[in-house]
Design a protein around this nucleic acid. Sequence first.
DNA 1: TGACTTTAATCATTCGATTGAATAAATTTT
DNA 2: AAAATTTATTCAATCGAATGATTAAAGTCA
Lengths: 223, 223
Amino acid sequence: MGKRDGQDAPSSGDRTRAALIEAGLKLFGEKGFAATSTREIAARANANIGSIAYHFGGKEKLRDACAGHIVATIRTIADPVLERLPVPADPATAEAQFRLAAERMAGFMIAGPEVQDFVQFILREVQQPTRAFDIIYEGLIEAVHRRLCHVWAAATGDDPDSEATSIMVFTVIGQIVYFRIAREVVMRRMGWREIGPAQARLIVTTALDNVMAALSARRERKP
Amino acid sequence: MGKRDGQDAPSSGDRTRAALIEAGLKLFGEKGFAATSTREIAARANANIGSIAYHFGGKEKLRDACAGHIVATIRTIADPVLERLPVPADPATAEAQFRLAAERMAGFMIAGPEVQDFVQFILREVQQPTRAFDIIYEGLIEAVHRRLCHVWAAATGDDPDSEATSIMVFTVIGQIVYFRIAREVVMRRMGWREIGPAQARLIVTTALDNVMAALSARRERKP
DNA sequence: TGACTTTAATCATTCGATTGAATAAATTTT
DNA sequence: AAAATTTATTCAATCGAATGATTAAAGTCA
């Protein structure tokens, strides 16, 4: 039935299952869990209302499945650099890698429309955690943050497991994430009608300047 | 009826009106607009369901009133420093004032439990804007950001109205706001059971170090 | 008295979930 | 291979509960 791997042709059940997850992801992220009705999800997925209960066991379980789908999708891309790639010992290389990672994250958060649904869904869970948050945190967020801590530590000579390093990395993430969360505020204040590639570039370079300035300052402090 | 100023003794209507706003603020911020029922609000305010329609004209109008209450409350405190206090001409004083402003905002965002309801309500509106967002943006957010831009510009010599300055200030705000939004992520990763004064201090000093490093770097660039 | 406010009851709608029948696909038996 | 059987999935209809709104009557206070 195609549950084992991607080899088999997806059955009808698999297809509606995937369509329901995609629709749920989109709508939960867009309007929030409570504001989204199961009828709306089913309609967008071209499925029957009953199929949600049949495939997942209810609205909440569908949300969990959405979280699982996000984790699985992102990890298939990010796992090599997240787990297997060794942290560079040389500070200069580490700095370059940190810079690249921050750049990637910024592109992911701010620009990329392909994963926009993912980001919005995750941000809602972060702000109001449910069981889906556990899935995303344990499967994704912690690994990313831990990795960034080690690269940062390799670049600065700090302790990768210290509180100071952890918080420092969070401030880097915060600068980037903010522009997704407060997208409406930024656009209104800047007079932008969208945050396109040009706008994203300005944001990313500014944030990266800050990060690099903080990194230099930290390295100067203990040479 | 005590609608004109705070001089009059609040009538019964004024009291339930205020109680409804307080309850709405709390619940909308806590669980979101859609997830909060009018019955829940009325119960928490010790009022009848009908009173929401009577005093505000419906659930959405109550949300607008909550936004108005936030703006009015904060402006009575912040207006002197936001509008009347002149921006210092001396870069050193401007820098000190920017630092102080960032510190205040961090305390407001991260620690202060008195205004926690306000912050949560605002953050929800920022992420999913309604008419209430317009009220808060025009009455509060824009003024704060504009002020910070001018102080920053006075400290660095930059143009207070340039895009670069605006984005720069947003990255400062972002570092701070993130710890409120991603509070759950941070606590879990750090192994904290709360973000109390001790934790807030670590966060604020880290963020301020970043800001100051960015400020120095920017000043060195054009001496 | 007369304006303001609260109250309980009821309104039509919408919600998530469930049901049992209908259909499609896969498996087993002949 | 054909028929019989089981399993998987879809579907329309319906459930009770909860929703926001409204109403008419009662209550309150100057």
